[in-house]
């Protein structure tokens, strides 16, 4: 197994998972039917988001690893940096959104 390619695939898959959770969570607050659909899939919207985020991580990692023939070390290094910022931005986006939502901005 190519470790550099694995790190690259995992970093992008984790970034996809962060983006998915943030997007689905915020969209769900604006669309009751969508949130209800998420809840109907597993019995609770949070359980569905959790399961889907894991599936997205595993699928994206597998696909990226299979599709990319070669990954330069510099690309893998950058993917770790992008993941770092995706987590910070995702965390702040969720905190900011729920604060604004509570304050009645949205």
């Amino acid at each position: 197994m190519n470790r550099i390619k694995l790190i690259y695939a995992s970093a992008w898959a984790a970034t996809a998972s962060v983006v998915f959770v943030v997007f689905v969570t915020i969209y769900g607050e604006f669309s009751a039917p969508f949130k209800n659909w998420l809840a109907a899939l597993s019995g609770h919207h949070w359980t569905t988001k959790s399961v889907l985020s894991v599936l997205i991580y595993l699928l994206a990692a597998g696909i990226i690893y299979a599709v990319r023939k070669e990954v330069a070390p510099e690309e893998a290094k950058r993917s770790l940096e992008y993941l770092f910022w995706a987590v910070i931005i995702g965390t702040l986006a969720l905190l900011g959104f729920f604060t604004a939502h509570y304050a009645g901005v949205f």
Binding site: L6, A14, S17, V18, T25, K49, Y57, V87
Partner: peptide, 18 residues
């Protein structure tokens, strides 16, 4: 915020460990 931030910890943790 907490319940949703928690969801993405594990994929990030696995990547960091790799």
């Amino acid at each position: 915020a907490k319940e949703h931030i928690f969801i993405f910890i594990l994929p990030v943790a696995i990547t960091a460990v790799l």
